[in-house]
Amino acid sequence: MKATNTDEQLFKAYLSKVKKETKIVYTWQVSILITFVLLWEIASRLYWIDPLLFSSPTTICQVIIEKFSNGSLFTHLEVTLLETIAGFLIGTLFGILLAISLWTSKRFSRIMDPYLVILNAMPKVALGPIIIVALGPGYVSIIAMGAIISVIITTLVVYSAFNEVDPNFEKVLISFGASKWQIFKHAIFPATLPAMISTLKVNVGLSWVGVIVGEFLVSKQGLGYLIIYGFQVFDFSLVMASLVLIAIFAAIMYKFVERMEAWLIKHSSS
């Protein structure tokens, strides 16, 4: 009895140690944030930095509250979020489909190789003007920007994951006389699901880049538009407020995808 007691105690001691460590980390994280905001506020009020250029946390809060209360911010937020989500989904889906088609034919993948390398190396946002000319100055172009930025990298990552699946799994299936599609369904797809999901996380960030740049170039709505507008009318509080919102929502989206990843991985393997 006594022995189990001490075992239990040791375990409890370990748990409390872990808890304490987590607490320290949290404390530091919060204090860094508070210090930063406070310093910013003080520096701005005491004119260490130009408040016209760098604004201040309170002004930014005021702008956000004011814009939310008159409802104008909702449309901008909604437009940007929808564009980002659409771009993200389309980019990921097309990337995976392209990877599947490369996997289906070795010859096709060899033919496509140099083009993929060039497309991947190319800074996609540079295509912005051409996309706008082709698809018109509207949300279609912006979604296309959000998508195109993640398509090729998704293709390359997923295709290389396909190729890393142990060929012996394929061999087992071939010995049963499996077709290409059956091999994909039973071996390649489930084996590479984690890799595909992890590209989602990367793509969320990329789609934000594409959409914001797209909104810089052409738009009358959205957070990217607000940034450019604020810049042009010299309202840097508006620029900062938009940035803060982008940071918050990008983080929320990332966390959401991360949750989804954990859920999918858990439910696909057990």
């Binding site: 142990d166 012996n168 799994f169 061999k171 087992v172 010995s175 039973h186 071996a187 489930p190 084996a191 696909s268 393997s269």
Partner: peptide, 11 residues
């Protein structure tokens, strides 16, 4: 056909 390792599909 039975291989050297089992190659049971882990999923």
């Amino acid at each position: 056909y039975m291989l050297q390792q089992d190659y049971l599909f882990p999923w």
